[in-house]
Each structure stands twice: as C-alpha cells, then as structure tokens.
Design a protein around this nucleic acid. Structure first.
Lengths: 252, 252
DNA sequence: CGCATGCTTGACTGAACTCAAAGTCCGTGG
DNA sequence: CCACGGACTTTGAGTTCAGTCAAGCATGCG
C-alpha cells in the first residue's frame, strides 16, 4: 500500500536540485512554469523562480499519497489522476472531504501541526508534484516571522474548516447539536474562558443553518439534552453538566 | 501562552504592552507578540518582526466586518468578540460557514481572487487586528514567486472547501447530488476535459459519504436524473444532457 | 469459473421538516 | 414607567423524505 518511505524521502532531501541534463531522459521533474500552469495561477510572478525544478511522484490506484499523522514534508500538486481525501474519526467512521484532481493542492493541513491531518488515497493512477517545505518557507533569507505565522494560521484555518465540515456528518441531528456544543466548549476553553458555562453569541437559526438542520430541530435537541441532565439551557446561557454524557451523545 | 524562543517568551511576560508612549493615548494598536499570543502560535519565531505594530478595528454587534466582493486588504485576527462568516448563494440562500472568535483568522479567502468571498458580521461587539497584505507578501525583498504561488493556491483551497461545505446545504438530497454532478462537470471543464462526458473516479459510497447521504440515495438520484433525461448514467460514465435542467434541479 | 465489490431497486420505517401557535426577552417610544 | 412591537425561542401535530434492510444483477479479478 504505502510507497514513499525513508530512503526516498532522504534522497529527496539530499539532492534538491537535479542536473538539467537528466531532463530529457527522465521525465520525473516538473518546472515552476508547469506548476503555475497546472494551478491556473493568474497572478504576478517575477521570474526569479523559473529555473526551479520539482520532483514528481507516481502512484497506482489504491495507493496512499499521504497518511494522517505522517510528518509534514511539503505540499503536493496533482499533475494527473484523481484522489480522495478523508478524515477518520475517533470512532472509526470515515469522512470524505474532497476528490482532488489535476491542478489541486494536497497537504496544506500539515503545516500547522507539522504532520498531515487527513488521509489521501489515489482513486486512479496519479502523478503528483512535490513542493518541498524549504521552498516556500524562504530558505537562505532572513526569515520573515509574519509570513511564517500567516502560513501557520492559515493552515490551522483549513484544519478547522475540515473539522467543521466533518462535524455535520453524523446520522442524527441531535448528535450534531451535541457535537457543536462540545466544540464550542473546547473553543471557550482554548480562549481561556470556562468550558462548562458560556453564552452562545448566535441564534438558533444560525446554529441550524451551520449544522444543516432547522432551528426547531436545534431547539428540540437543546431541550432533549437539558431534560436528560446533560446540559442546562436557558435561552443562550449554556451549562455543560456532563461532558462525558455529551460525548457519548455524539455517537448516534 | 507557549512559545519556544526563550528571549521572546521572557519579553512577553515582562512587557506584554508595546512601546509605551503611543499606547497611553491610543489603544488602537497591537504588537506582533500579542498576535502570536492570540493565535496560540507554538512554532519558531526569530524576533525580527517583534517591533511590528498592527492597527485594530472596533465593530459593534451587527456591523459587517468584511463583505463578499470587497477588495482584499489583508487578514484579520479576532482580538475580542464573536462573529459569523457566511456565503450567499445565487438563489439568495445564506449558508453559515463558521463562528470566528478570539484568536481566529478572518479573510484568507480573499487572497486568491483579490477580493473577499464571504460575508463576516459581528455577533457581539468586536475588536479585530489587521495584518496588511504588504506585511506577509514580503515587501522590500526579492519577491519569492513560489511563496506567492503557495499563498494563492492555499487560498483557493480554502475557497473550494467553503464551497464544498456549502454544497451539502440544500434541503433535498437529490439536489445535492445534482449539484455535485454540476461541480464535477465544471472541474473537468477547468482541467481541459469535456464538461458533458466524463467518468467518475469514485464509488457511490464515497460520493454519498462526501454529500452526507447514503449510497442508495445517490444511486436513486442518478436514476431519477437519468429517467428525467437530464443526464445519462451507465455505471460511472456520466453524460450531461441538459446543464440547464441540472441547474434547476439544484434548487430544491 | 467463482468470488468480491459495486450498483440498482423495492418495501418499510423513522427521523427531521413544515406549519402553526404561544410564550419570552429586549429595546423603543409614548 | 409601562406598553408595545419585533425578534427569538419553545412545543405540538402532521407529513414527507431519506435511511435501513434485503434481494438481485453486473463487472472485474484471480
């Protein structure tokens, strides 16, 4: 199943720039121009990177391109073929995030925790182009902290969006609402506020829209969780009485 | 909260407040350190940007922070308050993407088309910090094309994810399947292939998982669209017979 | 050839939506 | 100050849509 293991990765690191001569006989490199083309990039470039070459990586249908937890080693552009990205929940359920194809970007969710956070498998035979981390983290120059921070924050943004998207994938609507509350609780905790007592800033309608259920369903779910003693609801004031029970409620 | 660069960490503790003189009279600036703190950034910084100051922007509840179509002018970090990001469909339906709060990033979907692609409104009174475009697009240095491309591609990634997420928000499952097919058609067109005849690389199960419906529902939707003469399905071979009718089908 | 995987279709059931009514909270203006 | 209106919320009753279970067919691979 898995392909790229230590030795290959090491080879990539040790010889980042290929000798130009090889190109004719060896098709396994792509130019910066080809990458821009694939991405259908329509912005300005200055031509300073035009000489850059990037390694390609072939995959057979069914092979894994990136695995959850694997250390981050750069971004990939799809040159050919179709893939599937997915996240696996703690309960083992898979959630399909997208079907990347020619010109799409892979692996950006890896920046923020320095490891990839989603599975990527090839659905057909594929050809990927790797953009090593060092190439866009500004090597050999005075590092720009703001840039690095921006990359990191944006990557986290992607991860959060993926997680949110996955959030709406559970059979029952009550479970979605429970998951939403747990998520809110964790976010309040991360901000330094109480995870067990907080005020929701949004309406039932907004919550429902976000979770793809009606506002009545949200209200009913809140009432149900309240009458089970899992939470206490009073308009927008929420008390989490048992985080344990709330978590159990998330799984159908 | 947690930062590796010893000297910086120390500085944070001792003087979390920026260059004194300006501050007393004017509270509308934030330091780079405060931004890192807010983001809970746990990576390496080199301290070269520590002097940077960023403008704040106050919002009252109900005010709009960013509007769809507005020209891109930088990223924003939430310093205080809660907001709502949403996209508005062509048919006028709103789709709530997220509820950004303290420490969250706003506006990155603006990089790729140089204008913001989602609405952001304040749910409570808010305080935002603006990171101008010029600060992370590396001004005053030899511009790094690869970096710029990476930003652009990543922004497009975010946009696509948002759109995908919005895709799963329509009342009826058949409409979701229709929308999925239309999206696929457009993607094939963008890749230079035929938008009206293509082969799906994924299983019904994967499509269903992606759209949050069962594989049987996907199959039934395909059959329904086929018998209406809107598409022609034969296993994974799809022909779009009437894009017009397909679009109408998407709206409920 | 036989098995595994994927796809289609049917019948039944249950969960979530729609429509409706009533109650609560809040800000505004008399 | 209180009355009013509007937005938000809760709860109920009926209906529809999509999930579940099950059976059968097609396709591809060993």
């Amino acid at each position: 199943m898995n392909v790229q293991t230590g030795s290959n990765a090491a080879r990539w690191q040790s010889s980042p720039t290929p000798p130009a001569l090889k190109l004719e006989s060896d098709e396994r490199w792509s130019t910066f121009e080809e990458v821009l083309n694939l991405l259908r990039f329509d912005g300005q470039v200055h031509g300073l990177s035009n000489g850059s070459l990037f390694r390609r990586r072939r995959l057979k249908a069914g092979q894994s391109a990136l695995r959850m937890g694997q250390p981050f080693d750069g971004l990939y552009i799809v040159r050919l073929g179709a893939l599937k990205t997915s996240m696996t929940h703690m309960d083992g359920a898979e959630h399909v995030l997208a079907f990347p194809m020619k010109g799409d970007l892979l692996g950006f969710d890896g920046v923020c925790k320095n490891k990839y956070l989603s599975e990527v498998v090839a659905l057909t035979d594929c050809d990927l182009i790797r953009i090593p981390e060092s190439d866009f983290f500004s090597p050999g120059r005075a590092c720009n902290d703001i840039e690095r921070m921006a990359y990191w924050a944006i990557s986290r943004e992607i991860v959060q969006e993926q997680t949110t998207y996955a959030l709406t994938h559970s059979a029952k609507s009550e479970a979605r609402v429970a998951r939403f509350l747990r998520t809110q609780s964790e976010r309040f905790a991360a901000m330094g506020y109480s995870p067990s007592r907080f005020t929701l800033p949004m309406t039932r309608r907004d919550i429902g829209n976000h979770l793809n259920v009606t506002l009545e369903t949200v209200s009913r779910a809140f009432s149900a969780l309240d009458s089970l003693g899992i939470i206490s609801v009073e308009r927008r004031e929420i008390k989490i009485l048992s985080l344990e029970a709330l978590r159990k409620f998330e799984n159908k």
